[in-house]
Design a protein around this nucleic acid. Structure first.
Lengths: 106, 106
DNA sequence: AAGCTGGTTCGAAATTGTTAGAAGTAGTCC
DNA sequence: GGACTACTTCTAACAATTTCGAACCAGCTT
C-alpha cells in the first residue's frame, strides 16, 4: 500500500465532493452489479462527454468505480466494498476518547 | 433550504476530502459530546493555528461540526446526525434500478 | 489598563480542480 | 476500407483551494 488509509479515504471523499460525481456515483450504485454504460450516465447527467469522462476517471482512480469494456461500450460499476469501507471509516472509534457516555451517538 | 440535498452533501464530502480535515473530524468524533478544544486539535494535528482555523471553519460551514465558546476556548463537536445522514445518502436507493439481484450489495 | 493566552481573519502566492471544444482511439457495420 | 458510433485524451483557459505569516480580537489575570 503506497498511500495510507487516511490518504486513500480522503481522496475518495474528495472524489465524491462534487455534485456531478456524486450524482454519477449514486446513479451507478443504483444500477447494481451490471453497472451503467458511459452513454447512459451521460444521458442522465446531461454533460459534455469529455467533462464526464474526466470525472469518471477520477472516480475510478479513487477506487470507487470499476470499468469494463464491452465492444465500444464502457460500463462502470460501483465498488461496493470500497464504499462500505469508506462509510465505516467515518464512524470508526466513535466516542472512544471521552468515555463519559457509553455510546449515545453511534 | 437554499441549496439542494445533493449540493449540501457534495459540499460535506468535499469538506471531508482533505487529509487534515478528515483527521480533525475523526478526532472530534472520538471526543464525543463534550467535543474538543481548538488547541487540543492543533496539538493532535501539528499544524499552524491559522491553517487549522481555516479548515475548522470549512467543516463548520459544511454542517459537520458545531462550535461553542467557553471563555477563550473554542470547543468543536461533531454533528452526528449530519454525518449519519451523509453516510446514509451514499447508499440510498442502492440496486433499485437493475432489480436483477435482490440486494447482493447493500 | 497592560499583558498574556487562545483563536480567528486577512492577504498573497503556489497549487490544484474544472470545463469543454478539438482531436484521437477502438470497435462495429456495411 | 470507409463511415459511423462510443468514448477517451489533449489542451488551454479559468476558478477554487491550500498554505501560513502577520495582524487582529476577545477573555482572563493582575
Amino acid at each position: 500500500m503506497a498511500t495510507s488509509k487516511l490518504e486513500r479515504h480522503a481522496a475518495q471523499l474528495s472524489a465524491l465532493g462534487h455534485p456531478l460525481r456524486l450524482t454519477v456515483l449514486r446513479f451507478v450504485v443504483k444500477a447494481g452489479a451490471e453497472g451503467a454504460a458511459a452513454g447512459d450516465i451521460q444521458a442522465h447527467v446531461d454533460t459534455p462527454a469529455s467533462t464526464l469522462s474526466h470525472h469518471l476517471k477520477r472516480l475510478v482512480e479513487a477506487g470507487l468505480l470499476a470499468s469494463r469494456a464491452e465492444g465500444t461500450f464502457h460500463y462502470y460499476t460501483a465498488s461496493y466494498a470500497a464504499l462500505r469501507a469508506l462509510t465505516d471509516y467515518l464512524w470508526e472509534d466513535c466516542c472512544k476518547a471521552g468515555a463519559r457516555e457509553p455510546s449515545a451517538c453511534c
